[in-house]
Design a protein around this nucleic acid. Sequence first.
DNA 1: TATTAGCACTCGGAAGGTAAGAGTGCTAAC
DNA 2: GTTAGCACTCTTACCTTCCGAGTGCTAATA
Lengths: 343, 343
Amino acid sequence: MLTQRQLLILQVIIDDFIESAHPVGSRVISKNGKIPFSAATIRNEMADLEEMGFLEKTHSSSGRIPSEKGYRYYVDHLMAPIPEDAGVNVIKHVIQDGFFEFEQLVQMSAEVLSKLTNYTSIILGPELVETKLKQIQIIALSDHTAVAILVTNTGHVEHRSFSIPIEMNPADLEKMVNILNEKLQGVSIIRLSEVFQTEITSLMQKYIRDFDKSYDYLKEIFFNEHPVKLYIGGKSNILMQPEFNDVDKIRSFFSMIENEDKMASLIKRTKDGIKVTIGNENKAEAIKDLSLITASYQLGENQMGTIALLGPTRMEYRKVITLLHVLSNEMTDALDMWYKNNE
Amino acid sequence: MLTQRQLLILQVIIDDFIESAHPVGSRVISKNGKIPFSAATIRNEMADLEEMGFLEKTHSSSGRIPSEKGYRYYVDHLMAPIPEDAGVNVIKHVIQDGFFEFEQLVQMSAEVLSKLTNYTSIILGPELVETKLKQIQIIALSDHTAVAILVTNTGHVEHRSFSIPIEMNPADLEKMVNILNEKLQGVSIIRLSEVFQTEITSLMQKYIRDFDKSYDYLKEIFFNEHPVKLYIGGKSNILMQPEFNDVDKIRSFFSMIENEDKMASLIKRTKDGIKVTIGNENKAEAIKDLSLITASYQLGENQMGTIALLGPTRMEYRKVITLLHVLSNEMTDALDMWYKNNE
DNA sequence: TATTAGCACTCGGAAGGTAAGAGTGCTAAC
DNA sequence: GTTAGCACTCTTACCTTCCGAGTGCTAATA
C-alpha cells in the first residue's frame, strides 16, 4: 500500500521530528542524504502521506509532523531496532549489582529508567500473589506500647506500632503471637485478613483474656489493605521536554501524576509483552496527548507488576522500547533467582 | 521613626499585595476605608516609605510592592496576629488523631502543612539522638537468605535482607543474634556502628565459626548511615503561585527541591523558635527570591527536628507563622507523650 | 502647616500592522 | 517520473499606537 520510498520518507520524518521537535520540511529531507530525490518530489510524497493520514501540518505552509496514525505505523512496522545503547548496560549493571528486597529493586529500576530516558517512569507492583507470610513478631517497647512486625518470604517487612490494652498481660501477648504464627505462616499475604477472620478470631477469644478489647489493634494490622505500591521516577523530567513549555500543561501534568490511584489504574491492565499507547489511544482523558509504554515483569507464570514510561507522543520509541525490554527481562530474571532462593 | 500613619499604610500595602500579587496604588488604599486620607496624601507617604527602602516600584508609574526590607519590618513589627484560622484546628485534629511512629507523624505533618498553605513544606528529622536500639532479630527466609530487623524504642523498624554465607549454620546465626542483642540493647542508634566495631567484632570472632566471612553483611546493617530523613510535601504547590508563571523558574525550583542534601542543609541550622528568612537573607543562591520559614519541634531538651515552609517572598506570613507555631507545639507535645510511653 | 484636587507625565500591555523567512502546492519543462 | 520555479500561506519577530493605571508635582484649600 505504501511504496518503498514513502516508507523511507515517513521514517525519516518521524526520526527527525522525534529528535528535533520541529516540523520537518521537504528541503531538509532531500538534503539529509538518505533519499536521492529533489525537494519537489518529496513534497508530492508528503502530500500523499498526509492524505493517507500518516502526517499532519501545524498550519497550511508548515513542514510535516507525524500524526498519531503515523507514530502507530512507525512503532508497528518502521522502527529500526536500536543498534547499541549505553543505557542497556547501565540497566544490567544496576540490576545485577544486587538488591535487598523487591521494593528496592523496583525503586532503583524506576530511577534508572527515568534517568536514562528523561521521561517519567512508573512502576507498579510487585503484586503480592506469590508473597507469603513468613513470621509475625510482636516486640514490646514499653508497658503500654508494642510494635508488630510481619515478615514475608520475599524479605519484605511491614510493621506497625500500637498501644497495648491494659487488660492484656505479657503472657497473653505471647500466646497471641504463637497462635498467629502457627495459623498464619505460609499464608498468602492477600488472604491474610480472610484467614485471620475465619480461623484466628474464635481461637483467640477462647485463649486470650479480654481478647475483644485488643482485637481492634490486630485488625488494623491484618486488614490494612497492603496496597499495590506505585513508584514514580523523574516526575519533573517532563519539564525538559519542549512540548511542556506552557505552565498550564505542567500544572495539569503534575495534578495527574500526583493522583496515585489514577496512575495505577492507567497501567494496570497490561498483559505480557510491551504495549505502546499513543495519544488518543489512551483511554484516560488526562494523558490523551501523551504516550504510554508499558511492559510487565514476571515471576514464573504469574504476572507480578508493570513498568511504564510516560512521555510526549514525540517519544524516542526505539530507545524506550529497547530499554523497557531489557529492564523487564532483567527484573524477571532477578526476581526469579530471588524467589528460588526464598522458596 | 515611622509615623503611625506610615506604619498603617505599609501594613495595608503589604497585606493587600500578599493577597493580590498586584502592585498597590494609592487610590486603592484610600478607598479601602482603613486610612481616612486622600490618595494624594497617601502618595506622599508612599514616596517617603519608598525612600526609606520599605517599598519598591516595578516601574516608574506603577503601584508599590513591598521590598525585602518591607517584608522584614512587617514580619518583625507589623503583622497583626491572626484571629482564628481553620487550619489550626485541622492540624490539632490530625496530630491528635494518633500516629504509629515518628515517621508517620512527620509525614502527615508535612502533608497537612502544604495542603493548608499551598506552599512547599519541608520537614527534617526526627534526629536520632534519643533513639535507642530495642531489639535485633534475624529471621531466616530460606537456607540461603535472611532478613535482619532492628527495632528502636521509638517504634521505628529498619530491615535488610542478606544472603547467609554457606559456612554459617543456624546455631551460629542464633548465637550471633544473642550476642548482638545482649551487647547492643539500649545503645543509641547513632553510636551503633561504633559499639559494634569496638565490642562486638572481637566477641564474634571468638564464638562464631568463619565469622570474618559473614562480617560484611552485618557491617552493612550497622554502618548504614541512618541518614536524617527529609520529607517534602506539596512540591507542585508552587505552581499555583502567580510568581511561578515562567517555565524556567519552575525548572530551577524543581531542580533545587530534588537535591535532598541541599534542602536538608538549607534548614538545618535552625535554633529554637520560628525563624523567617526573606529573599536575599537566604544564604543559598537557589532560594534568593523565595522566603523560608522554619520552626523546630522538640523532645525534652534535645532539639529533634525542623519544620519549614518554602514559598514566594510574597508569603502569607501571618497564617504561615501561626500554623507553624501550632504544628511545632503539637508535634512536641505528641512526641513528648510518645517518648514517655516508650521510656 | 497639613491636606487635597488637578493635571501632565510615564510606563506596561493589548491590538494592530508590516516584513522576513520557511515551507507548501502547482505548473511547466526536462 | 522527476524537478525547477514561482506564487502563495502562515508564523514570528518587531514596531507602532493607544488606553489605563498610577505617579509626582503644583497650587488651592482648611
